[in-house]
Design a binder for these strands. Structure first.
Length: 373
DNA sequence: ATTGCTGAAGGG
């Protein structure tokens, strides 16, 4: 039966980053001489003739000068981050940065593993509800669909006890985060549990570095979800961070979808108020338990289940450290020497500056530092 | 456009 489980199909490509490859290249080049301030054109050869653009040297120069002072948030034209941005940053900050600068550079092998994981998640979602495609053109439309999803999911959670792919958003330590909770359900004891499924290519439990990242992910979800149901994520804060235009008319397909869902709203502003009321007046509790489940992709065997303790102070200080990079208060860091094994599977190992400087050198000087148990 | 822009997560 067609219980509501909506999802918009935004025409995302048109507004993606694909059309600003020129400036991306400039930004990338600039990374290398970012610390020596006030160099105008330190790369005599290539920079004076970037891909077929000898027509705007002035903007290039402005760009390069500005980059020294622009924060990564500004450089990447971001107003908010995804929860998973901070999680990949937790794995290796520099790898995350390279990933932002050179999008779509995953090896096909990795992409395939991710695709399988995504399809398993999709299959589980479809067990709970159908998907409806709602075409959207503006970001206001896309957010409206997200809000309509919340409006239908909150009562579903309260009546049926289980929902999947619940959108969350809110400010943490000065940065606005957006994410999606894999699953929320009430346990037999009546506790609200967050369940995060992690599928794995090989039938073994993850190393602790991976687990740490997963703990961080679900902890962030709880932090944001709790803030939402406690009324700490206000429409004003949302508007401030996302720069959504609450008065911009919603697209026809979104309006039709809202009407079919029994929601009559004129504007995005109305919708946001409705969401705020739904979140705060539906008797939603804070999340009681955080559960991670590791499952083998091929055989669907459960490899292990972990209950994560929520450590608010640790989560916040970790976010604060990561946000310092995004706000431009510090340079990005690579992994510590003892985690250099991560570089073995990194797509950016050949261009990584970190390996040439600081951390990695000490491992070359001290190769005898083998593990003494 | 002398400018603006975002499905999030996907696994290691």
């Amino acid at each position: 039966m067609a219980e509501t489980g909506e999802e918009e199909t935004a025409s995302a490509e048109a507004s993606g980053f694909s059309d600003i490859s020129d400036s991306e290249l400039v930004e990338f080049l600039d990374l290398e001489d970012a610390k020596e301030s006030a160099v105008s054109l330190s790369k005599p050869g290539p920079s004076s003739e970037l891909p077929g653009k000898d027509d705007k040297p002035v903007s290039l120069q402005n760009c390069k000068r500005g980059l020294d002072v622009l924060s990564p948030m500004d450089r990447f034209h971001l107003k908010y981050l995804y929860v998973t941005d901070l999680c990949t940053q937790d794995w290796c900050e520099l790898q995350m940065v390279y990933g932002k600068e050179l999008p779509g550079s995953l090896t096909p092998e990795k992409a395939a593993v991710l695709d399988i994981g995504a399809s398993i998640h999709l299959a589980k979602e479809l067990e709970l509800h159908d998907l409806v495609t709602v075409p959207t053109t503006t970001k206001e439309d896309a957010w409206a669909v997200k809000f309509l999803n919340i409006l239908s999911m909150v009562p579903t959670l309260q009546s049926e006890g289980r929902i999947r792919e619940f959108p969350v958003f809110g400010e943490v330590e000065g940065i606005f985060l957006v994410g999606v909770i894999d699953e929320l359900h009430y346990t037999s004891k009546g506790e609200l549990e967050l369940a995060e499924l992690k599928t794995r290519r090989r039938p073994v439990l993850p190393l602790s570095a991976q687990k740490k990242k997963d703990y961080f992910q679900v902890s962030l979800y709880k932090y944001i979800f709790d803030a939402m149901v406690q009324g700490k994520v206000t429409p004003a804060s949302l508007i401030h961070h996302t720069k959504l235009c609450v008065d911009k008319p919603l697209g026809p397909s979104v309006l039709r979808h809202a009407r079919q869902g029994g929601v009559s709203v004129k504007s995005l502003g109305d919708l946001m108020e409705l969401v705020f009321l739904s979140l705060t007046l539906s008797d939603l509790p804070a999340i009681d338990t955080l559960k991670l489940e590791y499952v083998h992709q091929e055989t669907a065997t459960t490899l292990g289940t972990e209950i994560v303790a929520f450590e608010e102070k640790e989560v916040k200080s970790k976010v604060r450290h990561f946000v310092a990079y995004w706000m431009g208060r510090r340079d990005p860091q690579g992994v510590d020497v003892e985690e250099a094994w991560k570089c073995r599977t990194c797509d950016y190992v050949d261009i990584c500056e970190w390996r040439r400087s600081s951390g990695m050198l000490s491992s070359l000087r001290e190769p005898k530092a083998k593990k003494l148990k």
